[in-house]
Simulated scan of single mutants.
Amino acid sequence: MRMLCAVGVLSLGAVLVGGGPAAGAVVGPEADLAYHGYVTVAGGRVDVRLTPRNHGPNPVGDATVRLRWSAPLHDVQRLPARCARAGERTVVCRTGALPADGLGEEIRVRVRLRGVPSEVSMAVDTVWGGGSVDRNHANDRQRVLALDTGDSYAF
């Protein structure tokens, strides 16, 4: 009886290890998502304007971008309908459809920070790429430091 169990486990292990896609194989359609925009900090309020872009080669029906701040967000936020709070310092937003080699609709988010820090860093990255494979993460992972001056900082 013990021998049968061991053989069954070995067979299952072989299937799990050998049954996946080959290294480097594309599992879904390929797309190259990128985010560029501006962040402004003034008096504990942070305004973000970002435009998602898909460098292609395939369209993306929808994706999710994550915005994370170095300072905690105030407990109460008024976010756009396409955005949701995802933690003490995090908001996620839907990009909507992104055509191949095209721009998506601009996303505008205003958040209130807990307190009034003199500076805040913000990280932007893709949480979900709509089922597509993105081999170039150099342009969908951004980080920007913004001072509480009311000036716009580009990313």
Rank of each mutant, 00 (worst) to 15 (best):
M1Q: 13
R2T: 15
M3N: 14
L4M: 05
V7M: 05
G8C: 04
L10C: 04
L12T: 09
L12M: 05
G13M: 12
G13A: 15
V15P: 12
V17P: 12
G20M: 12
A23F: 12
A25Q: 10
V26T: 14
V27S: 09
V27I: 15
V27T: 14
G28P: 04
D32R: 09
D32L: 13
Y35L: 07
H36Y: 14
Y38P: 09
V39G: 06
V39M: 08
T40D: 11
T40W: 05
V41I: 14
A42F: 07
G43K: 00
G43D: 05
G44P: 11
V46G: 02
R49F: 10
R49Y: 13
L50A: 09
P52N: 09
R53S: 01
H55N: 05
G56L: 03
V60M: 00
V60Y: 01
G61N: 04
D62T: 11
D62V: 08
A63E: 02
R66P: 05
L67M: 11
W69H: 12
S70R: 07
A71L: 02
L73P: 03
H74F: 00
H74P: 12
V76T: 15
V76L: 14
R78C: 10
R82W: 11
A84D: 06
A86C: 01
E88L: 13
E88D: 08
R89E: 08
R89A: 08
R89S: 13
V91S: 09
R94F: 01
T95Q: 10
T95I: 06
L98D: 05
A100Q: 10
A100E: 06
A100P: 00
D101S: 08
D101C: 09
D101N: 05
G104S: 01
E106C: 07
E106D: 10
I107Y: 07
I107P: 12
V109Q: 05
V109R: 01
R110Q: 12
R110A: 10
R110N: 08
R110T: 14
R112I: 13
R114S: 14
V116D: 10
P117E: 00
P117H: 06
S121A: 15
V124L: 07
V127K: 02
W128T: 14
W128S: 10
G129V: 04
G130V: 13
G130D: 04
S132Y: 02
S132Q: 00
V133M: 04
R135H: 04
R135P: 05
H137M: 10
A138D: 13
Q142T: 09
Q142H: 01
L145I: 15
L145N: 12
A146E: 07
A146N: 11
L147K: 10
L147Y: 14
D148M: 07
T149L: 12
G150N: 07
G150D: 06
D151H: 12
D151S: 08
D151C: 08
Y153L: 00
Y153P: 00
A154S: 09
A154P: 08
